[in-house]
């Protein structure tokens, strides 16, 4: 509810990733002439990025919202009720997941309108939506963990550049096999964000690529389990402290 009421929390995650994709797709179009580039449409190649970038915004938004609850004492008041910790966490993350699905539908609509062909067909689109929801949940949990731990919206905002580093030092703008600088290629290979982007990208430009899907789902589930465990522990600690 709160997420829907605040335009500031859902408009930027919709607009900015699409704007960045549009500018990059235009400027980097000639990359498709490189030998080994997996598609002739850079837009199709780049469309995967907004899904992950939007989810990174969700981390910030979830974190900032929950930090506000901590700062205003709302969490303190809830600690006096019989509400269980996990129910509180699920409640706080459900808005983030709903927003993630709305974002994904928007990016899909933009892609389809611009003429991007989905190689995996309607079933692939469904998998894509499930993946988008999962990514939002897992990154949202990461935001919640930071919020419970740090308890300040400003500290969460200060983490923003760090998330951008993960996005940019990945296979966001070029396939890993076409990254020429050694250390960058290594960093992009070690960066889980690369596999998330490649998972979504495979559904759009390849079709059904079991390896990309397995790595994409595997990493996000792993991140999700760790984030939820950390968030739940941090919430428990905060409730005990109050």
């Amino acid at each position: 509810m709160r997420t829907a009421r605040q335009p500031a929390s859902f408009i930027p995650p919709l607009i900015f990733p699409v704007a960045l994709m549009t500018v990059n797709a235009a400027g980097l179009r000639s990359s498709t002439h490189l030998q080994g580039f997996p598609t002739t449409s850079f837009l199709a190649f780049a469309l995967a990025v907004p899904f992950i970038q939007g989810a990174l915004f969700s981390t910030m938004n979830a974190g900032t919202d929950i930090a506000r609850d901590v700062q205003t004492g709302f969490i303190n008041r809830l600690s006096l009720t019989t509400l269980r910790n996990w129910a509180l966490l699920v409640g706080q993350l459900s808005g983030v997941v709903a927003l993630g699905i709305v974002q994904a539908l928007f990016y899909l609509a933009v892609g389809l309108t611009a003429g991007v062909h989905f190689a995996s067909g309607p079933a692939g689109i469904l998998v894509l939506l499930v993946y988008a929801a999962l990514v939002s949940l897992c990154f949202g949990a990461l935001g919640a963990f930071l919020a419970y731990r740090l308890g300040s919206g400003e500290s969460i905002q200060a983490m923003f550049p760090v998330l951008f580093v993960f996005l940019f030092i990945s296979s966001m703008n070029a396939p890993r096999n076409l990254i020429g600088v050694g250390w960058f290629k290594t960093a992009a290979t070690l960066n889980p964000v690369s596999y998330m982007i490649e998972c979504v990208r495979s559904l759009i430009i390849v079709g059904w690529d079991p390896e990309a899907l397995l790595l994409g789902f595997g990493f996000i589930v792993l991140i999700g389990i760790v984030s939820l465990a950390l968030a739940s522990r941090a919430l428990r600690l905060r409730m005990t402290r109050t």
Partner: peptide, 17 residues
């Protein structure tokens, strides 16, 4: 950061015809 991301990640663009 931009320098790293652009110069590092996109260096193969020099091979574009």
């Amino acid at each position: 950061f931009f320098f790293t991301a652009f110069a590092g990640g996109l260096s193969q663009l020099r091979h574009v015809p």
